[in-house]
Amino acid sequence: MDFLVVNFAEILFYCLAVLTVAGGIGVLVFKSPVHAALSLLFTFVMVAALFLLLHAELLGAVQVLVYGGGIMVLFLFVIMLVNVKTLAPEQAFLSRLAPLAVVAGVLLGVLIAFALIFGVLVSGHGDGTALRTVGGAEIGNTEAIGAVLYTTYLVPFEIVSVVLLVAMIGAIVFGRRSAGLEIEGGGGES
C-alpha cells in the first residue's frame, strides 16, 4: 500500500492520461456522432481532473461547466436538430483520404515528438501556492485569477466578450430563416 500512497500522484496521472487518450480515440472511431459526443464529454472530464492535479481549480471547474455543460449540450442539440438520418451510424463515416490523413497526422506528431525529446522546457519548481496567492496572501486560485484577469488581462478579456458577441451574431445570421430569400440550387427542408 505504501507504493500506492507514495506514488499516488503518478498513478492518478497515468490512469487519467490513459482514459483521456481512450476518450480521444473514441471521438475518432465511434460511428455515431452521439457516441462520439459522449466520448468527447468523457475526455473533457478527464482533462478537468488533470487540471485539478495541476492546481488549476478554477480551470477544472470551468472545463466541466463550459465544455461539459455548455458546448456539449450545444453539440447534442444540433445533432438532434439537423436530421434524424445523421443519427444513424453512417455507412462511410471516414473521409476518402483517411489512411493518408492518419499518416500525415502521425508524421507531424513524430516531428513534434522529436522536438520534445531534444527540447528543453523552462526551468521551474512547480509551486502551487503561487497560483493561489494575491498580493502576498494565499486566498485561492479563483481569486488569484480574478485579480489578474480584471487588471493585467483586462484588454483581452473585454475583447473576448466581443468575440462572444460576434459568435452570437454569427449563429443568428446562419440560423435565422429569412423571409423573402429563396434557396438557390434546391434541397433542404426549409
Binding site: 466581443v162 445570421v173 440550387g185
Partner: peptide, 21 residues
Amino acid sequence: VGLELMALSVYVLVGYFKLEV
C-alpha cells in the same frame, strides 16, 4: 484574442450569403 475576433467575424462574413451554396 484579437486574431480570433477577426477570424470569427470573417468566417461569418464569408458565409454571409447563406442561401448560396
